[in-house]
Structure formats: C-alpha cells, structure tokens
Design a protein around this nucleic acid. Sequence first.
RNA 1: GGUCUCGUAGCUCAGCUGGAUAGAGCACCGGAUUCCUAAUCCGGGGGUCAUGGGUUCGAAUCCCGUCGAGAUCACCA
Length: 581
Amino acid sequence: MDVFAIFSARIAQAMQSLFPEAGADLLARIVVEPPRDPAHGDLSTNAAMLVAKPLGKNPREIAGALVEHFRNDPDVTSVEIAGPGFINFRLANPLWHQVLRSIGEQGAAFGRSSLGGGEAVNIEYVSANPTGPMHVGHTRGAVFGDTLAELMSYSGYEVTREYYINDAGSQIDTLARSTFLRYREALGETIEIPPGFYPGDYLIPVGQALKDEFGDSLLGKPDEEVTPLVKERVLAAMLELIKADLAKLNIHHDVFFSERTLHGQGGDIESTLAWLRDKGMIYEGRLEPPKGKTPDEWEDREQTLFRATDFGDDVDRPLVKSDGSYTYFAADIAYHRNKYLRGFKHMINVLGADHSGYVKRLQAATKAVSLNEADMDVRICQLVRLLKNGEPFKMSKRSGDLVTLADVVEEVGADATRFMLMYRRNDAAMDFDFALVKEQTKDNPVFYVQYAHARAYSIFKTAARDLPELDVSPEALRAADVSLLQSAAELDLVRVLAAWPRTVTAAAIAHEPHRIAFYVHELSAAFHGFWAKGKDDPSLRFVNAEDPKLTLARLALVDAVRQVIVNGLGILGVSAPEELS
RNA sequence: GGUCUCGUAGCUCAGCUGGAUAGAGCACCGGAUUCCUAAUCCGGGGGUCAUGGGUUCGAAUCCCGUCGAGAUCACCA
C-alpha cells in the first residue's frame, strides 16, 4: 500500500472530472509528495499551479474546487490551500493504521511493485579485464550494479546481471606469456618478468597447474600451439579468481559473456557489420585528429567508420584497426546487438569514471543496432580514494601495486563495504576511510542501521520477559488493534514507513540505489528517536506490562519497522543481524 | 582545445528528476543513563547552494557564459 500513489491517482481523477479540458499529459505531471515541512501536512500537490496557466485560470480557483472535492472525504481530515497554490492534505489516523496493517500483511513484499511490468532489463556491471584479481577501483561499480539489479528486480523488472569478459585483446596474449613464465618458474627456472608483463603473484598457481597438467612438455613446442592452450587455462583461472572475489561481496552474475565468441568467421561481429553496412551506417572515410591534442603517431588514412554521429556521438568511430582486426568498439556494437536480439529493450551499463568518454558511443551503438527501439542508460561510478585516518592508503598483497577488493573486504567486512559505497551518489567521487568504516559507533551509518534492527529484536525479548503470556506470533501481530496507536510519535513513525514504497519506486525510476541506503538510515533515526521518547515518557514505551493490548499494537509497529529495514537492507545486500556483538 | 561528471554549513554528504523558511551526520557548545541495549536520544550556533545571466507563477535543481576540481580524447581494452 502506497498512500502517495493512491492519492496521486485520486487527485488526478478528481482533476479529470473537474477540469476535463486539461489533457492527460498535463495531469500526468501532477506531483503528490510529502511536503518538506511536516507542518504543512501529510501530503501536498502542485496540481492547481500546474494546470492554472494552460487553462487560463487562477490557481486558487482550481485549488478551491479540488479542496471542495476532498472536503468530505473520510480519509482526509483537512485540505487547505497554501502559499502560491499548493494544496495540503492531512490524512486521517485510520489511514495510517491501514498502512501499518498492510505492512504486516505484505511483509517482505511491502515496497515491491510492478513498476517494471516484467520487462527485461540487462544490467552489465564489473566487466573487469580478466587479467588478475579485482581491485578497489572495480568494487564501487560492482556494488552499485548489484544493488541496482536488486532494486530493479524488486520493482518488477526481469533482471539479467551480465559480465562482459574482455578476453579477445592483445592484453590476453600478454597474460598468456606472463603465465608461461610462471610455468617455467614452476619447472625450476629462475625467471625475470619484463616490463609490460603481469607481475602479480596470482599467476604462480596457474603456472604450477600447467606444470601439473603438462609436465615440461610445453617447453619445446611452437608458440602457435602453446599460446592457445595457456590462454584457455589462464582465462578460466582468472575468471574463477574474479568470481571468488565477487562472491566475497555476495555478488553473482547470471551471464558471463565472452568477447571472443563474437569474433571469427560467421561470428556476431561479421554479421553485425554486414547488417550495419546494409543499413548504410558504415562508410569508408577519414577522421580529423582531435583538436588541441594531436597524438604523436597520427596516421591519416582512410578507414572503416560507423556513423555514430547519426546517433548522437561526437565523431564517427573506427571499426577496423590498421592491422585489419576489429576494434574493441566493433565487438561492442556486435555485443549490444546480441543483447538486443536476446530480447533486451532496456539496458544499463555500469562503468568506471575512466570510461566516461565511452558513454555516447555506447548509446549510439545501442540506438543503431535496435533501430532506436532500445534504451541504454550508462551509470558512471566515480573514483574511490582510499584513506586510513585521513592519509592516502596503499596496501598491496597480491596484485603488484593495487589494493584489491579482497583486501578491502578482509579489512572492513562485506556489510560495511557495501553500505558505505551505497551511502553516496555514484557520480560523485568519494573517500573511503578504513578507520571510519570499521568504527562501530553512530558515526558509522552501517552500524546505526543494524543497531536499529537489533533493537527491534531486543524489544521483543523484553516483551517476552515482561509479558510472558502475550502471544506475539506473526498471526497475533497481524490481529493487533493498531488503532490504539494515536500519539503523534507513533503516527510519525508510521508516516516514515509509509514512504518506503514511494522511495523504492523513485529510486528504481532514477536508477539511483543510494536512495535506499539513505531511506533506511532515516527510518532508523526515526525509530531510535521514538525509542528514546520512552525514556522521558514511560507511557510511550513499547512494552507496558499493564496494557497487553497496547503493547501488542506497539509490537506490531516495531515489527513493521523491523520488516522495512530488512526489506531495505535486502536490496542493499547487507545483513540484518538480530543482535550486535 | 573537445567531451563527460562534479562544486551545497568548518569537514563528509543528502536534497524525492522545477515547489513553500535549503537538510542530516561529524566537529563545536549545552543537556538526558536507578528506566525496553547511551552502539542511543534532545537542544543550540553555523549558508551569497562556486559565480554572472536566462527560462517562469517559482530555480540548489533546467539552459548559456565564467571560474575551480576530476576523468577522458582515432588505430588500447
């Protein structure tokens, strides 16, 4: 039950019947939201101001008609016109009680919606090069993508979580060569790792495994025979490494899509380029060097170009390298056509800030291959600066000079990592201070929220102690007489709970999962605040041994808070412990 | 030089895709603990929303310019 959605519909309907001359487009823009200042009421609409000008009427005249319409509505205790033409509603207590009951009935489903209507969304995230373990730079995108996927799924989309494996480039040849060195090392040779090779220790076990599998039989063989063999082994090993890293944050993809499968005769790149050519989206031409920064080895030559500018990109993009092989972008076009042909009309890609220059061409590619049928939202995750007590922080165990994802999780734990990364907009750079994240105080929003959840459990324990006869089973809580909750403090808490479905929907539409983290924090604050009121005013305590019926009603409220925190933390992928140790 | 982000309290950040007197945490000051977990709560001071224009009933939010920070710039991935 979403009171805002309900009233949004009712207000739109009222406007429709009162002012039929206002078009549907106009009415769709009506906003119903809680006013910033609670003194203004429970919800507020701009309907009158919005419609006034197009209809050539006075806002207050329109507002007056709407006020009249709702004057005798039993769900509304007051409607008034305020400011330049806002209409403020105050809702009747029974409606809030109804919200509370619906949370009890819906439980984990409270906040779920059919916003997405079961439509398929492909969310591609992480897609780190399979050349080593995940480092911190990937962590933010990984958590963001995973949380967004959960949010979209929660909001009624059919979500596919996808990882694009960049396993076709020359870096993979380098990786294979680096691995071969480790193989020779495993056979007893003293090796030296040349610059440009991958120096990380994580290749040592792969070399060892090659030795175990082949003995020294690879040494004498020609490169053309050995390289594909090594490549296959090391790619598989790296992918396992990455999956294991992601699993540490409880991140699991549905599809791992290999770039290599797009290449080759009869592959998707060939067929896609043929298709594009057929549509006239490819031509042979020359590019201007970028202004202000001419690359040293600029080679002015005619090349095969994709008409990206026709789809909003800044320049047309090359598809074939000077050596005749396909560019990365050519493969990416084919990949996104593949996605489209698999049935995805909604695609979201999560990229790091270092790929922000890639956004336009990705969107251009998506439009082109779908003939403008599909939409592509690219979410950029800005960089994370690691700090410890305010000082830049370096920690390297496995991957040369980079802090790995595994390091971070080991240091602060998966819950804190996930929550802290989501407690910030994705498009703003952030500092991640280990000392702060590990601190278990109110400065740390993770523990603040988890403590609120644990506190709900604690209240139930107290109830069991003080009122051992009281039945607090889920059935009993659902049957509680919540209309006994009449104090402002109680109803204010319900108001916060009532905002949950609206918060989820707005976050899903905007693709902004950080709003979930902020909401959960806000709800926790409201709950802690109410709890503390019981200190000054014992009549507001949850557990009152003299009044089992009231206690039961309040426990239903506590349980609703607990449930919504669970739902929110569930989207965030953060655990909700029953007690903090 | 082009493009893309960002600029909000001393610090870290929200601001519900244009709404009413711009919010929270930290820090600072002052309170609350024989009482459901003080891992918490209550109160106070603190702002030219970088800046200058524009759009309109109304702008932190949208558009243009300027300043500043970061990222990126054919044939890497």
